[in-house]
Design a protein around this nucleic acid. Sequence first.
DNA 1: CCAAAAGTGTTAGGGATACACCCATGT
DNA 2: ACATGGGTGTATCCCTAACACTTTTGG
Lengths: 220, 220
Amino acid sequence: VFTVDEHEIEALLVKVREGPYAGKWAFPGGLVGIGEELDAAARRELTAQTGLGDLYIEQLRTFGSPDRDPRARVVSTAYFALAPRRGLRALPRKDPSRKDDENVADQGPKYADVGWFPVRRLPALAYDHDEMASCALARLRAKLEYTNIVYGLLPHEFTLGELQELYETILGRPLDRRNFRRKILASGLLRELRRQRRGAHRPAMLYAFISREPMVVAML
Amino acid sequence: VFTVDEHEIEALLVKVREGPYAGKWAFPGGLVGIGEELDAAARRELTAQTGLGDLYIEQLRTFGSPDRDPRARVVSTAYFALAPRRGLRALPRKDPSRKDDENVADQGPKYADVGWFPVRRLPALAYDHDEMASCALARLRAKLEYTNIVYGLLPHEFTLGELQELYETILGRPLDRRNFRRKILASGLLRELRRQRRGAHRPAMLYAFISREPMVVAML
DNA sequence: CCAAAAGTGTTAGGGATACACCCATGT
DNA sequence: ACATGGGTGTATCCCTAACACTTTTGG
């Protein structure tokens, strides 16, 4: 699960409780029920371990190296999910830096040993989850350019400035505000709401995605 | 496994021997060995069932609906492969149409109940392989535009006309010859060989891919 | 009054597209 | 000779990228 906050892409990790990797951080996961769809299992485990629900989610890749879990042959189908920016409406743009271990998920019910970590300085992960992380990050960057799945990283209403900041964070480069605004509005994917967001400075018009269904569209 | 021949995209199917779908056509597949990599298992099964080897291959998606095999819960990781055009050097461009069931693989050793089928008129497939087929076809079309994996559909040397014909078949639209040639050559992915291919008409210069490693490149 | 983000148009350049004619060969 | 595919150059258009100033608010 990825989110973007404070100009950082963050990933959701949980602390492994048992086995040879106990104490290490890893992506949340679990076992598929015998009569359960893979997608459903991914959603179920996510909610159970983190309290997050109703996210954009898609299959990433299946990892099956014979030695990826020293205890037994385990084949894992990894999923890729996007969560809206935490506390978007309440938080100011800038925030004093925190230590990683204090980064506990702060929305929904509280869960122990769950936290958001900036992907540029992830701890060493359990199993082959380092490889999963780079695979997922590549997918995120690629899909933002040719699909509309950014909506998964945003609340229902947002300003163009927030949307642009999101793209700049994920692509790692600044974008020209006028060109960005022109292209995004011309794409016809957004509708202008009647309200504005008031903040520390000049209010900004709020927008929402007309459709929150995944589709392939040239975004940038 | 896909190939392109006679202006048709074709897929490789094998006849199911047992179980509720016996007699139906399906993609080749099998069981992963207990200490085997998934990729290695895909390659092994492919060669065992069809005689094809050394193809471009990548993971497609994992299919795991509880009822996809009525006998038991079976989770299948599907792979996507590309085979060079059959008999490219020997066959003429045009060929009288054949019946599907006579379409038996004609290179390498002979295998019973294996054949190439045009994807636009596939028979009803066993299991959930219809869904796999459309998933794989979408992947093929998408990846041709932004990667160099076409090389998997071509022999080591080929003419620009053959390359263009390949793209036209897969994309389903004609391309301007001059623009195609200009863009492909400007990409720097090909090297001109010193030889020409002689055929029914004016000889054409032969080209080869400088690198046959998969990479993301804007091709069209 | 100042700081900070929001909002807005124009221009120049490059890549994409459209288009027609001659060439080399086999039959 | 002719049919067929190979090979080449140019003009136009649209999209992209670069660029600066005014507005609105909170503090």
